[in-house]
Amino acid sequence: MAFTNSSVPFFRHDRPAEVIADGKRLDGRDNEEFRTLFLNCGTISQASGSSYVELGSTKVMVGVYGPRQSDRWMKYSEQGSLDCDVRLATFATRQRGRPIQTQLEKELSAQLETALSASVLLHTFPKAVLDVQCLVLEAGGSVLAAVIAAATLALADASIELRDLVSAASVSRVQGIQLLDPTAEEEYREEAGLVLSFMPCLNQITSLTSHGVWSKDELRDAVELAMGACEEIDAALRDQLVQNASQRRDPPVLDEDDNENA
């Protein structure tokens, strides 16, 4: 017999009223500093390519499957297509999410598709679909940026041909100050914000979405700030791919997992 009464959320802590105290961010970062980035690939055994990305407390896991034959109802296309699906775990957000797809998840999925499809050589797999499945385990701010980085890493891990890796960064403006890689609390208090995805080697922007009011100069500064961050993220992604490829070539003699538990 299931519990049928409706319940209301319970919050252990209130949101902080101020996210900038004495000109400093709450976590002590510089305004133009992003959080610790942790990358890993090959995390899902059945996927063609997979990745796990941590950007501070934001945690994202991506699996790439396919390319597979496109569904019957889709029209014939000489180009392949990307099918992106982003989900948030119910415990990822401050208030418990719903298991069914929400508007936010639909929007994130669409934005991910826009950001990535410019980088994928779609004509190399005509009539086929590549599934990019993402799960956000914890939404601690800058979720879209983390999802894009994780997805591009998983695509590369799946040996899908790409024009360039796509990196993304978000900037929030709080009390007139531009903050790179905002946390969930900073995003909540922001006046304006933007998310930029960028291919650093080609020097091309694949998508840029902003909300709130930006002056011309502010917007230019924010875009440059985000582009700089994308270059750093790009370097980290490449390092991870090289590391992963060399591990694959010379696999360690003993499995690490077995050692820990032996």
Partner: peptide, 20 residues
Amino acid sequence: VKLGRATALAGIKLEVASPE
């Protein structure tokens, strides 16, 4: 929890309700 490569993540969120 990992069992070899099989992995599951359980997360609990508390909410408040009136008893049944």
